[in-house]
């Protein structure tokens, strides 16, 4: 009991995020009838699953103190390769899945390797990887976007149990798995050590480079899953389908209590950020806010979150000094 209380207390801002999300839905549905309807909530939940996968992936590089800016084309790549392979190259669906998995893992590994071993700045490396994937994709498909999504995937992406989309349940399972990885696995323990203090981790006999590389691989896989689900929901893949997500994932991660300096926060937190952003996005659409206002708001919100976090640490530090 004691333990649960402590967990609740430590994660109060994350709970706050979930609470605000629910409240927002409730408040807006008073003004706009349709917003709170079960069908709309179901739409929100599957949007949440797509963004959520990208965000929990992004969590891992950020936990190491890095960043993954290759999310947009990682997800785009997964969707287009699958559709193009099945439609134009006549691959079987399982084979196409295997190819997608291989490509994303390879891209994640290359990013991770260059960042960990060759000391390339994470942002430049992943931004470069984003543009490499874009170029590779364009030249492979000759600029066509891949076409319609295979039936199997669309059925999965659109399936519902009651009003609950299956993909949301799938996403919940994803959160649980990654939570287990973070909190109860050897890798998770090492990841937090690396994120908080690379030197201390190194002197504790941890292979810092391998841990860092693995984080980028996990992010790549999660982004690919998000891309596939999105392509299944939309029914086709198109170029640039991930472009708007680069910034949103970072904002969600920051709102979800993951420190951009690494080592703090977990996937349940970043998922709460994703939920909040999904709802705010949908709200802005309902309120007919322009893209510009949306982007402006992201910027301001993220900056606010960052400054708050930076100050929290400083206040915390001051308090600690008095304690001793």
């Amino acid at each position: 009991m004691e333990k649960w209380k402590a967990v609740l207390k430590n994660n109060s801002d994350i709970l706050g995020n979930y609470l605000i999300s629910v409240l927002l839905v409730a408040v807006i549905s008073i003004f706009y009838r349709g917003f709170g309807s079960l069908s709309h909530i179901s739409v929100l939940l599957s949007d949440f699953a797509i963004l959520g996968f990208l965000v929990i992936g992004q969590t891992f590089p950020v936990l190491t103190g890095g960043i993954d800016m290759s999310v947009p084309y990682m997800m785009n790549c997964a969707a287009v390769v699958l559709n193009y392979g099945v439609n134009t190259k006549n691959w079987s669906l399982p084979a196409a899945f295997l190819v997608v998995a291989a490509i994303t893992l390879l891209a994640g590994t290359v990013s991770g390797f260059c960042i960990a071993w060759l000391k390339v700045h994470p942002m430049i490396m992943t931004y470069g990887m984003n543009s490499i994937l874009m170029g590779a994709l364009l030249s492979w498909t000759k600029g066509t976007a891949g076409g319609f999504t295979p039936e199997g995937l669309t059925i999965f992406a659109k399936a519902k149990i009651g009003f609950l989309p299956v993909v949301t349940l799938f996403f919940a399972a994803g959160i649980l798995t990654l939570m287990l990885v973070l909190k109860r696995s050897a890798y998770g323990k090492r990841l937090y050590a690396v994120g908080n203090c690379k030197r201390a981790a190194y002197f504790s006999g941890i292979n810092v480079k391998a841990v860092t590389m693995a984080a980028y691989m996990i992010s790549a896989v999660c982004a690919a899953v998000g891309g596939l689900i999105m392509s299944g929901r939309v029914g086709q893949s198109y170029l640039g389908m991930g472009d708007s997500y680069m910034f949103i994932t970072l904002a969600a991660v920051a709102i979800g209590g993951i420190s951009m300096n690494g080592g703090k926060g977990h996937v349940a937190g970043s998922a709460s950020g994703a939920l909040l952003i999904t709802i705010v996005l949908s709200m802005l659409t309902v309120l007919k806010a322009s893209l510009g206002v949306q982007q402006l708001l992201y910027g301001v919100v993220l900056l606010g979150a960052l400054i708050l976090e930076a100050n929290k640490i400083r206040f915390g530090g001051r308090r600690k000094k008095y304690d001793h």
Binding site: Y192, A193, N196, C197, R199, A200, F203
Partner: peptide, 13 residues
Amino acid sequence: TEGLVLELSIADN
């Protein structure tokens, strides 16, 4: 900065 990861729990360290 080298001996301990200060933010982590005693057990984890």
